[in-house]
Simulated scan of single mutants.
Amino acid sequence: MTPPAAGQVRVLLVEDDLRVARVNRDLLERDPEVHVVGSAATCAQGDALAQALHPDLILLDVHLPDGSGLGLLRHWRTQGRTTDVALITAADDEASVRLALAHGAFDYLIKPFTGARLAELIARHRARRLPGSAGAARLDQGRLDRLLGLNQAAPGPLPRGIDPHTLDRVAQALGTSPRAVTAEEVGELVGLSRVTAWRYLEHLVRSGQAVLDHQYGQAGRPVKLYRAAVEQGNGD
C-alpha cells in the first residue's frame, strides 16, 4: 500500500448520530488535505470499513448501537491494528478515558468540542506520523520522541499570520525531504507561494525546528536552503 503524502489524512468516522457525523465531516474537510473516506454507525460497520479502507486515522464514538467503541478499540489492538484512534464521545467518566488510553487511543475529545480542538487533534496525528514504511523504518531517538509526542514545542500563541495547520504541513514537507530545500520548493510541495513558505520556514528556524543554510558560488545573492533540525544522539 502506498504511504500517504505528507500532510494528507484519510479519516474513518465511527459515529451513530448521522447529524453529528455530518458536522464532524464538515469540520474535518475544512482542511483540504483531510478526507473522510468512510462513515460507520455501528461497531460491526466500523470494523469492516477499517479493514477495507486502511484509514490513517479513526475517530471513534463510545456508545454505539451494537456495543462499545472501547471494546472495538481493544479488538483492533489485539488484532495488531496500530492505526491512530481518537475517541470523540459524550462519555466523560474517568473509567472510559483510562480504558481508551490504556488501549492505545492517542487523543480523547468530550462532546461538545470546538472546531479548533478537532483541528489540534489532526495536527497531533500528523506530528506523530513517520516518513516511509512503518514496518521497515528504524527509529532514532528524535523520531521516537516525535512519535510519542515528547519533543513538540511547549504550547503558546503563534505569531500573527502563522496558521498552525499550515505550519504543520510545512514542517512535514521539510521533515520528509531527503535534502535541504528552498522556500520555492517547499511552496510547490505544500501549495503555497514562495513568500508564504519562506515566512513559515523562518518561523521554524526561529523555533529550532529547522536549520538555515546558504548556498554560495552562484551569481547574485546566496540561495537560502532549509532542512529539518535533527537531534544528535549520545553515541551509546
Rank of each mutant, 00 (worst) to 15 (best):
R77H: 08
G69A: 02
S133R: 13
L99G: 00
A123Y: 04
H63F: 12
G115C: 03
P112F: 03
A86P: 03
L60P: 02
R138S: 12
R117A: 14
R129C: 09
L118D: 01
L139D: 09
T78Y: 10
V85H: 03
G115V: 07
S133H: 14
G67A: 01
A116Y: 06
R117H: 10
I88T: 10
R128L: 05
R117S: 11
D140T: 09
A136E: 14
T82M: 14
A116P: 04
S133T: 10
R126W: 08
A127K: 09
L109Y: 05
A90G: 11
L60T: 04
T89M: 02
S96N: 12
E120K: 09
D92M: 06
R81V: 15
D61T: 01
Q79R: 14
G135S: 09
L121V: 07
H75I: 11
A91M: 08
G69S: 03
L130A: 15
A136T: 15
A105K: 00
R128D: 02
R138W: 10
A100E: 03
A90Q: 10
A134G: 13
I58K: 01
D66F: 05
L109C: 03
G115A: 08
H75N: 11
L109Q: 01
V62M: 04
G67V: 02
Y108L: 04
E94H: 11
F113P: 06
L57H: 04
G71L: 02
G104Y: 05
D93K: 09
L59V: 05
L101V: 15
L57K: 06
A86F: 02
R138T: 15
H75M: 13
A134P: 11
L99H: 12
Q79A: 15
T83A: 04
A116L: 11
R98V: 15
R81W: 13
A90H: 07
G67Y: 07
G67C: 01
G71S: 10
L57I: 08
L139K: 10
G135T: 13
H75E: 13
I58S: 02
D66H: 01
E120G: 11
P65I: 07
R81C: 12
S133M: 10
L87P: 00
A127F: 11
L118M: 07
L70R: 06
L139Q: 08
L73P: 03
P131S: 03
F113Y: 13
T89Y: 04
I88C: 07
L72I: 08
S96A: 12
L118C: 03
L118I: 00
G69E: 02
G132V: 08
